[in-house]
Simulated assay, not measured.
Amino acid sequence: MTEPARPPRPPRPPRSRAEARLVQRPSPAVIARRRLVVGGGAVLGLGALGYGVSELVGGDAATSAAPSPRATGSSATGSATPTASPAASPSPSPSTPTAAAVVEAPRLTARLEDYLDERRGTLGLQLVDLDRNQVFRFRAEPGLCYSTIKVLILTTVLRLGQEDGKQLSERQRGLAERMITRSDNAATETLLAQVGRPEVERVAGLVGMKETEIDTGWWGHWRTVPGDLDTMVSAVLSSDAVLDGARRATARFMMADVVDEQRWGVFAPEGDDVYVAGKNGWGPMPDGYHLNTTGWVVGEGREYVLGVLSTSPRGFRYGRETISSVARLCHDALGEELA
C-alpha cells in the first residue's frame, strides 16, 4: 500500500540520541487518523508522534501573547490570548457543551442491562449527546482513576504554561506525548512532579471535577466518577474556560493519536467515518482488573462524550471486551434519540 503524503511540519531542533531511538516512522493509519481528527492539514507546532509500544496489560502500574497572572483559586478562568494556533480551523472539532437535560433512555438502559447480565464485574457510565444536549447515566458510581486522570495532568501542564505565557518545552512536549499516546507512567510521574499535586487539584476545580478526589497517594488510585471524566474531556477539548484554542488543539491531537494497542473502550466504534480523541486507564486490584475509558467521539451523525468506569474479575482482556462492547452499544443507541 502506498503511504499517503505526509503533511508539512515546521523544523524542530535535533533530537538527542536517546530520544531518537524512541521515535519510529508513523504508520499510514496513524497519519490518516491525525489528518481526520485535526482537520486534514498541517498541525503546526505539535511535533511528530508515532511511538511504537507493546500493549501495557500488566498494569497502568501553543503561543501566548503575554503572561497572565497565576490563578490562586477554583474561580479563576483567565487565559492568555494565543498569537498562533497549532491548527487552522481544525475539522472535526468538538462542540461546546451547554447545560444538558438528564434523560432516562429506557431503550439503552435495557440493552445495557441485557448485555451486562451475561458478563462478570461492574460497570457504570455517563453519556453526553452533544447533538441533542442530553445526558444519560447508568450505575455511575465512583471508582479508581487509573490513567484516565492523565488528561487532567496534561490539562494542568498546559494551563500553567498558558498562565505564564509559555509554550511547552521540547522536553515537556515529549513527556506529554508519551503520557497520553502510550500511557507512559514514568513520563506522568515526571510531569506531575513538575506541576505539583496542589496545582492539579486547583485545575480540577477550574475544570469542574467536583467529585474527583486527589490525595497524597498514587495518582492511579485517586477516585472519580464517570461524570467527572466527561467534564474533564469537555473542558480540555471544547471549553475556553480552562485552555485557549491552541492548547486545546494540542491536547486533542495527542488524545487522537493513542497507539493502536490501546484503542479500545471509547475507541471501539472508530472506523472510516468515526473519529475519537480519548484516553483509557487500567490496572489490577484484589477484586479484579479495573478498566476505564473516556473521550470525545464524532461521526456517522453522532457527536458525544463518554466516560466509563468498570471492573473485571476475569482479567484485562475480558474487561476490555466488556467495556468496548458497552461503548459500541452507546454509539449505536445515539442513532436515535435517547429519551
Rank of each mutant, 00 (worst) to 15 (best):
M1W: 11
M1V: 11
A5F: 08
R6P: 08
P7Q: 08
R9H: 10
P13E: 11
P13W: 08
P14F: 12
P14E: 04
R17D: 15
A18C: 14
R21G: 09
V23Y: 10
V23L: 14
V23G: 06
A29H: 07
V30L: 00
V30P: 01
L36A: 11
A42L: 00
G45W: 05
G47S: 03
G47N: 03
G50T: 10
Y51W: 09
Y51Q: 09
G52M: 04
S54V: 13
S54E: 13
L56E: 05
V57A: 14
D60L: 12
T63I: 11
S64V: 10
P67A: 15
S68W: 13
S68M: 15
P69M: 14
R70C: 08
S75W: 12
A76F: 15
T77P: 04
T77D: 07
A80V: 15
T81Q: 14
P86K: 03
S89F: 12
P92Y: 09
T96H: 03
T96D: 03
A99G: 06
A101L: 06
P106A: 09
R107K: 13
L108K: 10
T109G: 12
R111W: 04
L112I: 02
D114W: 00
L116C: 02
T122C: 02
L125T: 00
R132C: 02
N133C: 06
F138H: 02
A140C: 02
E141N: 00
G143P: 00
T148D: 03
I149P: 03
K150A: 02
I153P: 09
T155H: 00
T156K: 13
L158D: 01
L160P: 00
L160T: 00
D164C: 06
Q167I: 09
L168F: 06
L168M: 06
R171N: 09
G174K: 03
L175I: 15
S183H: 09
S183L: 06
D184S: 07
A187W: 05
A187Q: 07
Q194N: 03
V195Y: 01
G196F: 11
E199D: 12
E199Q: 14
A204H: 05
G205A: 07
G205L: 04
M209L: 14
K210H: 15
E213H: 08
E213R: 08
E213A: 06
D215I: 03
D215T: 11
G217M: 07
W218C: 10
W218P: 10
W218Y: 12
G220T: 02
G220Y: 01
H221A: 04
R223G: 07
S234C: 13
A235Y: 05
A235V: 07
L237H: 14
S238Y: 03
V242G: 09
V242R: 03
A246G: 15
R247W: 07
R252Q: 10
M255H: 06
A256M: 00
A256Q: 02
D257C: 11
W264G: 13
A268R: 12
P269G: 11
P269M: 05
V274I: 04
Y275D: 07
A277H: 01
A277R: 00
N280S: 13
G281V: 01
P284C: 14
P286T: 04
D287M: 13
L291K: 01
V308G: 07
L309M: 02
S310H: 01
S312G: 00
S312I: 05
R314I: 14
G315H: 12
Y318R: 03
V326H: 01
A327Q: 14
C330T: 03
D332V: 15
A333K: 06
G335F: 06
